[in-house]
Design a protein around this nucleic acid. Structure first.
Lengths: 160, 160
DNA sequence: AAAATTTGCGTAATCACTTACGTAATTGAT
DNA sequence: ATCAATTACGTAAGTGATTACGCAAATTTT
């Protein structure tokens, strides 16, 4: 039925992407179920600001390991929703600092409760796996970080 | 450093997506290394047509488990590259059938050799993992297919 | 203190998909 | 045989990220 699923090691990139989108959609349902106007994609920045209280664009981008335009785009949405506010830094005129708004801070406890439950459930799904997805992903990420695919590829075929 | 990596079960959607993009990029390098003008994103359709020989847009979309506009877009690129050709179906005037062109068929043996090597190397990476990514992904996919995230979520919290 | 480099941010274009919508052809119900 | 429903395809716009580029402010070099 689903060709990609049968290809095994080949082309699992597309497959991972699909899975991630499914996961995101699941998250949306949960927020909706709780009647909270919040989207999974906002989580990283919002969570970051809930921990750091105030931060510049680059600081957030590095913390989340995404590019700075991604942070700018997401933060625009969050600002539009009134969940965060931004203000030019006093010390450094290049910087624009973001932080949670009053509304954002008010929403935080509700979100934290939901996050905690999502986390618990995700943990359960993950722990019931014989092969742990998170560890597997981390292993592959590390393997990639250590050596590029092509390099690895060349070495592999020298041996064979 | 990388917040998302530390969140564990929370928000690993973004992380999977990033990994899949890294994997795709690795694939590009390999084709380039062999001096073949081919991109990883073309693989699913191309491979499908190498197996099925001729197929309509919807048939491919279902086979690959993507939407039909995705197939149309990808196939446009492949047609532009001269690797596939399309032709209105005789039996059903709504359908447009795709198949490999002469050029596509000629390229196939070379690609198959590359695919085989990629497959071997991927298999090695995967087998060296303590937690197998492919099996892990499959387990999660199956869990999701069996029950929606929200449903699972509700049940989970009835117990708790 | 001036010049060169680096840093922080912003915008634009792109990518590989998706959803939403429309239309023509076929199939099914009565 | 006709009308409704479904199917196959196409287009347009949106999504959440990326790369590429540019500018102004700060920092470092000399």
């Amino acid at each position: 039925m689903d060709l990609i699923s049968e290809l095994g090691p080949l082309a699992f990139g597309s497959r991972l992407k699909r899975l991630s989108e499914t996961i995101m959609r699941g998250g949306e349902d949960v927020y909706r179920f709780y009647g909270v106007d919040f989207q999974p994609k906002w989580f990283p920045i919002f969570y970051f600001l809930s921990q750091k209280s105030e931060a510049g664009i680059m600081e957030i981008a590095e913390g989340l390991n995404v590019t700075h335009p991604a942070v700018i785009q997401m933060s625009k949405e969050l600002e539009k929703k009134g969940l965060i506010v931004s203000k030019k830094s006093d010390e450094d005129a290049r910087k624009r600092n973001l932080k949670l708004s009053k509304k954002g801070k008010d929403l935080l406890p509700t979100l934290q409760k939901i996050w905690e439950e999502i986390k618990l459930m995700n943990a359960e799904i993950i722990e019931n796996q014989e092969h742990n997805l998170l560890i597997a992903v981390k292993e592959i990420e590390d393997a990639w970080a250590a050596k590029s695919y092509l390099e690895r590829f060349k070495e592999f075929h020298k041996l064979g």
